[in-house]
Simulated scan of single mutants.
Amino acid sequence: MNYLLDGVPVLEIVLENPFVPKRFPVEGAVLAVFDTGYEGFALVPENVFRELRLHEMELHVRELILPDGSIARSSGTFGKVKILEPGISCDGFIETTKNVDEIVLGIDFAKGLKVILDYCLKRFEVRQC
Rank of each mutant, 00 (worst) to 15 (best):
M1V: 12
N2Y: 04
N2R: 10
N2S: 14
D6R: 15
D6P: 00
G7Q: 06
G7T: 06
G7A: 06
P9Q: 03
L11D: 01
E12S: 14
V14L: 06
L15M: 11
L15S: 05
E16L: 13
N17S: 08
N17E: 09
P18T: 09
V20P: 02
V20S: 11
P21C: 05
R23G: 03
F24C: 03
F24V: 02
V26K: 14
V26Q: 14
E27L: 12
G28S: 09
A29T: 15
A29G: 04
V33C: 05
F34N: 04
T36I: 10
T36M: 09
G37V: 08
Y38G: 02
Y38T: 01
Y38P: 03
G40V: 04
A42I: 02
A42R: 01
L43M: 09
L43W: 01
L43D: 00
L43G: 00
P45V: 00
E46L: 07
E51T: 07
E51V: 04
L52Y: 02
R53S: 12
M57E: 15
E58L: 10
E58M: 10
L59R: 09
E63P: 03
L66A: 10
P67C: 08
G69V: 07
A72H: 06
A72G: 04
R73Q: 14
R73D: 07
S74I: 01
S74Y: 07
S74P: 09
G76M: 02
G76L: 01
G76A: 04
T77M: 06
G79Q: 06
K80C: 08
V81P: 00
K82G: 04
K82R: 15
I88R: 03
S89T: 14
D91H: 11
D91G: 09
G92S: 05
I94Y: 02
E95A: 06
E95H: 03
T96L: 01
K98R: 14
K98P: 06
K98A: 12
D101W: 11
V104T: 12
L105R: 00
G106C: 04
D108T: 07
D108N: 14
D108A: 11
F109G: 00
F109V: 02
F109N: 00
A110M: 10
K111F: 05
K111I: 11
G112C: 08
L113A: 05
K114R: 15
V115A: 04
D118F: 04
D118Q: 06
D118M: 06
Y119H: 10
Y119Q: 03
C120Q: 14
C120I: 14
L121Y: 08
K122S: 13
K122W: 10
F124H: 05
F124Y: 05
F124Q: 05
V126G: 01
V126H: 01
R127V: 02
C129G: 12
C129Q: 13
C129E: 13
